[in-house]
């Protein structure tokens, strides 16, 4: 188990979370290297099928991150992501995906320490859970 490295797919919104991830790198915050970032224009465009596809293609966890409620570049895209997340989380739970493998987070452009924290926290908890299958 010691050489197990979890794979995390992170869908980051172009306007907030991706900027935060970029800034976290530029600011040299320590972050786990388990993340594969996919830049999307809005967290609201992350269809549940993207999440299922990530899991079925071998991801151990999926993070969807967007702007804080009220701050969405497209006015309410992040609320769409929020609405979907509950039902999606329930469906994933039913299909045997542990809680904590799917997360929705609000990370503003200025919150690069928060980004590093979420990534570190998530890779550690997924490492504890072990591989998906």
């Amino acid at each position: 188990m010691t050489d197990y490295e979890p794979k995390i797919i992170a869908f980051l919104c172009n306007w907030c979370s991706y900027v935060a991830a970029d800034a976290a790198g530029v600011s040299r915050f320590q972050q786990a290297a388990n993340v594969r970032v996919i830049r999307v224009f809005c967290s609201g465009m992350v269809d549940p099928s993207y999440v299922l596809k990530a899991f079925s293609s071998g991801a151990d966890a999926v993070l969807v991150a967007g702007c804080h409620p009220g701050d969405c570049h497209y006015i309410s895209g992040n609320m769409k992501a929020l609405r979907r997340s509950f039902l999606l989380a329930n469906l994933l739970k039913e299909m045997g995906v542990d809680e904590g493998r799917f997360r929705l987070e609000w990370i503003a452009a200025s919150e690069s320490p928060r980004y590093a924290e979420v990534i570190n926290e998530m890779s550690e908890s997924v490492r504890q859970l072990g591989p998906m299958h």
């Binding site: 269809d47 549940p48 099928s49 999440v51 299922l52 596809k53 769409k80 609405r83 979907r84 509950f86 039902l87 999606l88 469906l91």
Partner: peptide, 14 residues
């Protein structure tokens, strides 16, 4: 459609 369950989650919850 990629996955019917994902489609339904999306359709219902949005």
């Amino acid at each position: 459609t990629f996955d019917p369950g994902a489609k339904m989650v999306s359709a219902i919850s949005s």
